[in-house]
């Protein structure tokens, strides 16, 4: 099912949480929304889910306007940060709940979903008897049991420990692909956003600063905010930036710009040595891969003039519609 959002706005008192936000998602597409914490991503999801009413704008599901429909009339699944299982119901009852409310037959659905989340034996147990990861899996199964055409996920793994989180990401990704569910995944973790979405909406100040694939964001960041938010580049000024891999420690042939930097520490990332540097000019800390372990405390960074790039547009993200 396609989802199309047009000029969505929402204000809490003086806080413009959503500012004329628009985007479109094709059936079966997976999208991530990433942004700093407290930027209003959750409000966006709650509006899509029908738990909150926007001040302005429309939400179309497969051409149908659902903006004024309440949550229970929308057939959208929502998985919250916390599992929020009903403590007085067994695992099976929890999963069957939604289908039950809609008067659907549930037995085979519950069985399939229990198998899908690998918890067939836990069917008769109560949520309190499960681990955090198991609970979140049940929550997911419960959301899927109403056969939603769109699934919204609001940082569903953030309360899990890191190892489990990684497993769950792939598992959920597979499940969504298998069932062809259109999904929107909210997170504040850049890596998770790239893992869980074919497209990423970078959310800031009530709108998407850029809505594109991870590749596109790396190649063509749209504005300074994107550059600051991801660590693919170093921002030189309001118009210019440079890719991290183009920054060099030794003076290249040809024209270049030079910056003074202070070495803070060297660590390892993906078995590669990286230097953590403080660049005085921008009052900014950056991290660069370096083959050299004998860097001195004060170093110079060289950027070839032809590596400096300019932002493509005026910095606003409006050409996606």
């Amino acid at each position: 099912m396609t989802i199309q959002v047009e000029r969505l706005s929402k204000k809490f008192r003086i806080d413009q949480v959503l500012n004329s936000l628009s985007f479109k998602l094709e059936a079966g597409e997976k999208m991530s929304i990433v942004g700093p914490s407290g930027s209003g991503k959750t409000t966006l999801l709650r509006i899509l889910a029908g738990l909150e009413i926007p001040d302005q704008g429309t939400i179309l599901l497969e051409e149908k306007d659902v903006t004024r429909l309440s949550a229970r009339q929308r057939n959208i699944g929502l998985v919250f940060q916390q599992p929020l299982l009903f403590p007085h119901m067994t695992v099976a009852e929890n999963i069957a709940y939604g289908a039950h409310m809609n008067g659907k037959k549930t037995e085979s659905t519950v069985k399939d979903l229990l198998a899908a989340i690998n918890l067939t034996e836990a069917a008769a147990q109560f949520p309190a008897e499960l681990s955090g990861g198991q609970q979140q899996r049940v929550a997911l199964a419960r959301a899927l049991a109403i056969e939603p055409e769109i699934l919204l996920l609001d940082e569903p793994f953030s309360s899990l420990d890191p190892n489990l989180r990684q497993d769950m990401r792939y598992w959920v990704r597979d499940l969504l692909d298998k069932r062809g569910i259109t999904s929107i995944f909210v997170t504040h973790d850049r890596e998770e956003a790239m893992l869980m979405g074919d497209k990423i909406g970078v959310f800031h100040e009530g709108t998407f600063q850029q809505f594109a694939t991870a590749e596109e964001i790396k190649l063509n960041p749209r504005n300074p905010f994107i550059v600051e938010f991801f660590d693919h580049h170093m921002l030189l000024n309001d118009q210019q930036f440079v890719h991290i891999q183009d920054i060099q420690f030794s003076e290249p042939s040809g024209p270049c710009i030079t910056y003074e930097a202070e070495l803070l520490q060297t660590t390892f990332r993906f078995s590669e040595r990286v230097a953590h540097l403080y660049v005085k000019e921008f009052d900014e800390k950056i991290t660069l891969p370096t083959p050299d372990d004998g860097l001195s405390k004060h170093i110079e960074l060289y950027i070839p003039k032809d590596a400096v790039q300019h932002f493509q547009s005026d910095g606003k993200c409006n050409d996606e519609q």
Partner: peptide, 15 residues
């Protein structure tokens, strides 16, 4: 949140 969860799953006010 627990109430909203039930709402999301399609429960009417009475249910």
């Amino acid at each position: 949140p627990l109430m909203e969860q039930s709402q999301m799953l399609g429960a009417s006010v009475i249910k």
